[in-house]
Design a protein around this nucleic acid. Structure first.
Lengths: 279, 279
DNA sequence: GGAGCGCTGTACCGTATGTTACGTATTTTA
DNA sequence: TAAAATACGTAACATACGGTACAGCGCTCC
């Protein structure tokens, strides 16, 4: 194993810059100087920035071992994506003093929530909440094998503050029959994360054809149901565990429950009184 | 001052996504889901990722106010570059100007989790996990009106990796009858937060009398069931909402699921093989 | 129920981009 | 100093990328 560990293109360049001719070295230096942005632009821009010609840039990336320029750019993008995934905290993170098994899990979960909400604007949430608070139609909720409890949780709360909230449970054939109750004024909330369930996809498609507005809770890779969804909430699910985490989606669900409640209160719904007594 | 402050393309999208037709909205959602990497790739890749045609992508960026696709990509790159420059100033979810309803909720939830885990030692969790992984007895799970979905969630996972996991659902009279199945080798996991449910308390007491080991998930004020419980997990539940939050308990549950899974793997349980295939 | 509008995808086009061939300059070696 | 080898840029090339015209379709609104 005489090979060195090369994990980033920057290291690769540092490793080989000594063997490069003058022109390619200038290319390498300009790339390092504003790494990696220049590498994402066109060959022409790169070349003028480095003060060399286009072919020199191409010879440069070829020397790094890439077959062509697009392949080089893809590598840079992948590297960037990986870097953006772990929001810097990871590197600055204290080495979890206890060395316990809980800290990494908690930290990852907290990161997931921050990331999830980072991609989620107040306006989006408000729009969805408004849709759920619009009481001209019914609300149906359903989830997959592991996410159905989230649907139940949301349904349990919404059902308190408004009528016509239904959690779809049981066998697939059971939901099917509920399709005839669904129309364009209704909302269907679906939870579906990897591995996406065919039965849910089919159901979503049927509902979509009937004009039902679909609110989808899924992971960052988007369930195929996104195709039919009016609103998509993409939550982060990766944690250091054998399982995916639905915690971020859970928090979004709670946030939505709160938002819907607030909107109904503002609207002066009668039901709310009863709920007050409940607390 | 009617204009809003738009500082990132992500915000721009969130602002206008409501006015977009279906196809363009799908483009917006896929971009947000893995922001901003997809936007740096070619139109063709973007379009297939979003499941729409190329022109739809171009109309999408046009609607955002860009003259053409390269200009759009340049903006994304500039944004990325600025972001990479200042790793500290991660002000990506800005102080949510206006009546920011989401940020306080998220912040409170994150605080709750940190506080919850601060009062929870690795050893406690490991003990509980060991108890749940001990397969000489059965595992029963049950929850209250709003927390029962948490019991379901946990049961759904545990049932995959070990036999004899039962979620107690339905009417109170139903659980009662299950009491005769319970003995001192068995574990009962109960979720109970304010307002504590009498029916659950009574059930817990009966189970306790039969020697069942009770693991209680509750809030920081402790359900009366704590009196009978072998292990108590007290989660923070206060959030700026009309409802209490079960998110901290949810994360503890996920952590436990992970820990139990790990212990069973270490023990070389046969069931785990099947689960591997499942993932 | 019919007319109009808006949205979406297919097919095609022009061009900017990556790529290659070749000639010149520069350095290296005998 | 001469000759050879390497490196670099100019210019021509081909591909694939972004862009556009157009037709089909569904939707909404009379």
């Amino acid at each position: 194993m005489g090979e060195k560990m090369i994990s980033s293109i920057a290291e690769l360049i540092a490793d080989r810059i000594g063997t490069m001719p003058a022109g390619e070295r200038r290319a390498a230096q300009t790339l390092i100087a504003s790494y990696p942005m220049i590498g994402l632009k066109t060959v022409a821009e790169f070349s003028t920035a480095a003060g060399v010609s286009s072919p020199t840039i191409l010879r440069f990336v070829a020397r790094l071992g890439f077959q062509n320029y697009p392949e080089f750019q893809s590598s840079l993008q992948d590297e960037l994506a990986a870097q953006l995934q772990s929001p810097a905290i990871r590197t600055l993170n204290p080495p979890s003093p206890g060395g316990g098994t809980v800290s990494p899990m908690l930290e990852a979960t907290l990161d997931n929530m921050r990331e999830t909400f980072r991609h989620l604007s107040d306006k989006q949430l408000a729009d969805i909440a408004a849709r759920l608070a619009d009481r001209r139609g019914k609300t149906f909720l359903i989830g997959g094998r592991f996410t159905d409890p989230l649907a139940r949780y949301m349904a349990a709360h919404l059902a308190v503050i408004q009528p016509d909230v239904f959690h779809l449970a049981g066998q697939e054939s059971m939901w099917r029959d509920r399709l005839i109750d669904m129309g364009k004024r209704d909302v269907l909330v679906i939870f579906d994360i990897r591995r996406y369930q065919d039965s849910l996809v089919r159901f979503a498609e049927k509902a979509h054809q009937r004009g039902v507005q679909i609110v989808l809770f899924t992971d960052q890779w988007l369930s195929p149901i996104a195709r039919f969804a009016r609103h998509v909430i993409a939550g982060r699910t990766a944690v250091p565990s054998a399982w995916d985490s639905s915690a971020a989606l859970f928090v979004v669900a709670e946030t939505l429950i709160g938002a819907v409640t607030r909107q109904l209160e503002a609207g002066g719904a009668r039901r709310i009184r009863e709920m007050e007594g409940l607390r």
